[in-house]
Design a protein around this nucleic acid. Structure first.
Length: 488
RNA sequence: GGCCCCUUCGUCUAGUCAGGCCUAGGACACCAGGUUUUCAUCCUGGCGACAGGGGUUCAAAUCCCCUAGGGGUCACCA
């Protein structure tokens, strides 16, 4: 039997990182077993669903590299893949259950239900439907329908207990008396989640339902519905929740929750995928950094942890840096480019013209950056006017520690700049610099600290000889002259 | 509160299904050293956990029971 799994987001916002992880696990599981990954849009909530949100979710899914085999834009044998387009089928199945007495019409209005709930809570009872319309006579139902009274359709939960084997948690049992006669069809005739999810999963031949743990308590309702419909029950696997620092379900209160935000913040794509997988799953307990291929090779649902995972922004940042540093400079440069443009440091055209130069800068900066977005502020000194480089306090203090600072800077101007002009690279400049120091029997800091201050105005940063090359002889000369005066 | 789920370092986790190889391994963070022209990277070391209590067993992080704690969910949302 081919494995068929699905990810079924509701288009009511951006793609949540928890949802993305669920999708990733489903996707990996399908790929691992040569199965099919279905993407289905659960837009039964007309109030909150938007096309805009659907677009952004699809875009984020693609960005993460999850191609769906069936779903919006990809024809499949069980479409359409948007619930709003499948209404006829829901009505059909509902009519069947009604006919068989497995569901019934309920004429209780919102007002009655609300006061019922309030009363129950006041009595310290559990709020639940009281079965008021469960056994209405066919005549009464017909009469009230004819009178145009609005009604919902409720599922008639049978007696007994419902059990299923969860691939993450093992055997789970619910007493049916704890399960409410839930609403399948709203009074406007539209279907609810628990109803459509079963219809669609069955129609789409889904074999494994992997979803967040918040759905665990819905499962008995759904199992019961499969049984009432005479359908085969799929296998379930409830993934642990992703938690915020407060150990509660990850929400905006404790940090960013959408994939798009991390993308926009400049996290490498593969780092996002890798990190999400680390929440609740481990390759071997040793390897933290792994590829999508490795994920697909070894992902098993039974290896998923049971406990919730606190989302750790620090570790995420570390992992982002791991990925960014491994990138080829030209790739990294391309990904940093939008941020450089946004910061107003270079235009797209300039970036194009000086792509070699920019890549070289990126290469020199990669070890010092974790997110693409971090680059601009770290190379801002390159875009300052040469006459107005601002020295920060520590840089200037470091430079002033060396009494021969002016002399050393002058020596750099007189010996290194000509070398640079002649086309020397950073390695050659470094040699020349060291020779210059050896001559005078000075240690490196005597050169490094004044020079760094002169060139960058900062106490730390990239290799000085790289900086010399990036700046070029003209600009370096201006900065040196100015420093010789200012640091005198 | 009812029901359901969960519980190994601060955090992510390996080990639990098939009890001995675990004086519990790795990673992030933190601390201390080292390399380095600074910063960063990199390297070395340190700190640090089986929620508690009972069983079962020659032997329990691993199996059973209880307690405690945390979470999820209780809609004409999904």
């Amino acid at each position: 039997m081919t494995v068929r799994v699905r990810y079924a987001p509701s288009p009511t916002g951006l793609l949540h990182v928890g949802g993305a992880r669920t999708a990733l696990f489903n996707w990996a599981w399908a790929r691992r077993h040569g199965g099919v990954f279905v993407l289905r849009i659960e837009d039964t909530d007309k109030e909150r669903s938007t096309e805009e949100s659907e677009r952004s979710i699809l875009e984020a899914m693609r960005w993460l590299g999850m191609e769906w085999d069936e779903g919006p834009g990809v024809e499949g044998p069980y479409g359409p893949y948007r619930q709003s387009e499948r209404n006829a089928r829901y009505q059909e199945l509902c009519a069947r259950l009604l006919e068989e007495g497995k569901a019934y019409r309920c004429f209780c209005d919102a007002e009655r239900l609300t006061s019922l709930r309030e009363q129950q809570m006041a009595n310290k009872e559990n709020p639940r439907y009281d079965g008021h319309c469960r056994d209405l006579s066919p005549e009464e139902v017909a009469r009230r329908m004819a009178a145009g009274e609005p009604y919902t359709v409720r599922f008639r939960v049978p007696e007994g207990e419902t059990r299923f084997t969860d691939h993450v948690r093992g055997e789970v049992v619910f007493q049916n008396k704890e399960v409410d006669d839930w609403v399948m069809l709203r009074s406007d005739g539209s279907p609810t989640y628990n109803f459509v999810v079963v219809c669609d999963d069955a129609d789409m031949k889904i074999t494994h339902v992997l979803r967040g743990e918040e759905h665990l308590v819905n499962t008995p309702k759904q199992v019961l519905l499969y049984e009432a419909l005479g359908l085969e029950v799929p296998e379930f696997g409830h993934l642990p929740l992703m938690l915020g620092a407060d150990k509660k379900k990850l929400s905006k209160r404790t940090g960013h929750t959408s994939v798009q935000v991390y993308r926009d913040l400049g996290y490498p794509r593969d780092a996002v995928v890798n990190f999400l997988c680390l929440q609740g799953w481990a390759l071997d307990g040793e390897t933290e950094v792994f590829s999508v291929d490795q994920l697909v090779e070894s992902f098993e649902v039974r290896d998923v942890s049971k406990g919730g995972a606190v989302f750790d922004p620090e570790k995420f940042l570390w992992l982002a840096g791991e990925y960014l540093r491994q990138e080829a400079p030209e790739v990294c440069a391309e990904r940093c480019a939008p941020y450089v443009i946004e910061a107003g440091q270079m235009t797209a055209e300039e970036l194009e013209e000086r792509s070699g130069w920019f890549q070289e800068v990126v290469r020199g900066m990669q070890e010092r950056v974790r997110l693409y977005s971090e680059l601009p502020e770290k190379i801002a000194f390159l875009f300052e006017g040469d006459e107005e480089v601002s020295y920060d306090e520590k840089a200037e203090k470091n430079a002033r520690k060396h009494e021969h600072r002016a002399e050393v800077l002058a020596a750099v101007r007189d010996t290194l700049l000509p070398t640079l002009e002649a086309g020397a690279d950073a390695a050659a400049l470094s040699e020349a610099g060291k020779a210059l120091l050896a001559e005078r029997e000075w240690k490196f800091p005597a050169l490094g600290q004044p020079l760094r201050c002169a060139l960058t105005g900062a106490a730390g940063g990239p290799d000085l000889f790289d900086v010399l090359v990036w700046l070029g002889p003209e600009r370096a000369r201006v900065r040196l002259e100015r420093a010789i005066e200012r640091l005198a």
